[in-house]
């Protein structure tokens, strides 16, 4: 299944000299500084960086929610202008609609897109994918944090996007649930190797999940380190205790701490 992973890849997303500045009455704040990188189809990319460096801004630009000041983003060779259908978004908080059941929340993107045929079947399939059978008709209030985040992931996947953007998706969960959700995400990812860009604060989570980790510098963010993670897949939780894992963690920590001292 992953024999040709490195050979057969094509570029899915390309970021070139991306800069972003926020301007308000208090002045202007340069957040991204000529950031460039590309993401191969099927890659799992994690983005690390100091707090406030502009990681969320980067994701929001990729989602078409924020405009950059200069530079280009191309997805599947097409320049990005505003929100695109091929993008699934997962926020830090599950961000579910409390008046909709699990199934209805998952089906929301299809409903917006006016899909009528097979909406329910598709939503049900995703309920199964994220392991929430039996909770189809539960309301978000009745779900635990981890379950709610599973719904959010299912909702992002329901329209089969080209790329999944996740902004600290497990950031509000406790450590144990967080690790379990990481494993869960990998399990889902192993099924179709969707392209994922995931922002996190957690070095170990980044290594465990990613094919590649980008470390951003402090604001304004530029690319500080681009590290390939060549741990074998599918990954088991025990990989966290290997020497190789420790080495990678040390490298990433050094890169991030160098930034925090600035």
């Amino acid at each position: 299944m992953n024999f040709y992973r490195n050979e057969m890849k094509q570029t899915l997303l390309e970021v070139q000299k991306l800069s972003a500045t926020f301007t308000d009455h208090a002045g202007s704040l340069r957040v991204l500084d000529k950031l460039s990188f590309e993401v191969m189809k099927g890659d799992f990319l994690c983005v690390l960086g100091p707090s406030g460096s502009g990681k969320s801004t980067l994701l929001r630009i990729l989602a078409g929610l924020v405009r950059s000041n200069s530079g280009t983003v191309t997805i599947k060779q097409r320049a990005l202008h505003g929100p695109q259908p091929g993008i699934g978004l997962v926020f830090q908080d599950a961000n579910l609609m409390p008046w909709r059941t699990v199934l209805e929340n998952i089906a929301l993107p299809l409903e917006v897109r006016n899909h009528t045929n097979g909406t329910l079947t598709r939503a049900k399939r995703l309920v199964e994918l994220v392991g929430l059978q039996g909770f189809e008709h539960a309301l978000p209030h009745d779900l635990s944090g981890g379950m709610a985040q599973r719904v959010a992931i299912a909702r992002a996947l329901v329209q089969d996007p080209d790329v999944l953007l996740m902004d600290e998706p497990f950031g509000s969960l406790d450590a144990i649930t967080r690790e379990r959700m990481g494993e869960e995400l990998l399990r889902i990812w192993e099924m179709d190797h969707k392209t994922v860009i995931l922002v996190t604060h957690d070095i170990s989570e980044a290594i465990y999940l990613a094919d590649r980790v980008l470390v951003l510098s402090a604001r304004p963010a530029s690319l500080k380190l681009d590290l390939k993670i060549q741990l074998p897949r599918p990954r088991r939780p025990s990989v966290r205790y290997t020497r190789e894992f420790g080495k990678l963690a040390a490298r990433l920590r050094a890169a991030i701490e160098a930034e925090n001292h600035l």
């Binding site: 978004l89 926020f91 961000n95």
Partner: peptide
């Protein structure tokens, strides 16, 4: 109405009426 939900609707390219009906009205 929560900002993140507004962003979600925007990322789904929901129109004015859809945003009203699916998000703003119930919220």
């Amino acid at each position: 109405v929560p900002h993140d939900l507004r962003d979600l609707m925007r990322s789904l390219r929901a129109g004015r009426w859809q945003t009203f009906r699916l998000l703003e009205l119930p919220s």
